[in-house]
């Protein structure tokens, strides 16, 4: 299991990197943290002619919070989400869910942008980008595009990124006010891709009913999915665990992942609903001030 030959470039500026992408297009793969790409290379399931290693590109590894937005450079390592105080303060959901992304050794190299661009539907970060209504910033020599997460994932392990584009940042609106969050995942082993995972944000009205809800799922379809019908069903209701759970049945129809060696589709349907309702209930409890 050794990688095939490739032409290797490790530019230090974004301009150089974009130049290489403009020149080589689909023949060039971006090497970010390498936790998904390098296994594919080692198994020779991917054989790009050119690797554009963005690890030395200046300016992609920053993290800052300003004006209600948490902006993460695409090369921010995933472990930073776990460790960084700014992230924990701004988007505690992200900090808490990050420990489910592979294992710590993977997160030391794996990047936020790499995971999003790889777009594995069972991965946590794409799901989190959706639930947080993140915006993804793509650059090319043609300029900059800001893509809402809801438009970013367009098929199985596929995104709307163009061959000449590089993901440079993720902008996450910092949830304002008293927003509760929850994250639930079921995997065969700890650290595996999700059989089903759900992330939720909930705000409550003065009467304790759900004022707004955002719920997204991983592992259940070709892409991560927002459970919009479930969100709508929750709004205005009294979020008792029973209400939250019974409304979650609606999620079952979102599940399209076929049977595989780890789980059946029937199972994923049930468990998608369970993880969603548990995530929402956890979010409700946090919105009420519990932990």
């Amino acid at each position: 299991m050794k990688p095939p030959p490739f032409a290797y470039f490790d530019p230090t500026t974004l301009e150089e990197a974009l130049g290489l992408k403009a020149q080589h297009g689909l023949d060039a793969s971006v090497l970010a943290g390498g936790q998904s790409l390098v296994p594919l290379l080692n198994m020779r399931l991917a054989s790009p002619e050119v690797l554009v290693d963005t690890n030395r590109v200046d300016g992609l590894g920053g993290l800052r919070r300003s004006n209600g937005t948490l902006e993460l450079g695409s090369m921010v390592r995933q472990y930073v989400l776990e460790d960084d105080e700014v992230v924990a303060q701004a988007v505690p959901l992200l900090a808490a869910a990050a420990r489910h992304v592979g294992h710590r050794e993977n997160r030391h190299r794996g990047t936020v942008g790499g995971s999003l661009a790889h777009a594995d539907p069972a991965a946590e970060l794409p799901c989190l980008a959706l639930v947080l209504s993140a915006e993804l910033v793509a650059r090319s020599n043609r300029g900059e595009r800001v893509i809402p997460a809801s438009d970013f994932f367009d098929g199985f392990m596929s995104t709307v990124l163009q061959p000449d584009e590089i993901l440079t940042a993720v902008r996450i609106p910092v949830p304002a006010g008293n927003v509760g969050w929850g994250f639930e995942e079921v995997a065969r082993r700890f650290g595996d891709f999700a059989l089903a995972a759900a992330a939720a944000l909930v705000t409550l009205g003065d009467d304790g009913s759900v004022a707004s809800a955002s719920v997204a799922l991983a592992g259940v379809s070709d892409t991560p999915v927002r459970a919009t019908e479930y969100e709508q069903a929750l709004v205005g209701t009294d979020p008792t665990p029973d209400n939250v759970a019974s409304a979650a049945r609606i999620i079952e129809r979102l599940v399209t992942t076929s049977d595989d060696i780890h789980a059946t589709q029937v199972y994923r349907r049930k468990v998608a609903a369970v993880t969603a309702s548990r995530a929402v209930t956890a979010a409700v409890n946090r919105a009420r001030g519990g932990e």
Partner: peptide
Amino acid sequence: MYEELVYDEDGQFKCSTFMDYLIPTAME
């Protein structure tokens, strides 16, 4: 509970990597 060398009905092998052949970790 975890490990299985699976062949599908066509005899295709479904778990040729450690992503699919699940050896228990310290957490399991």
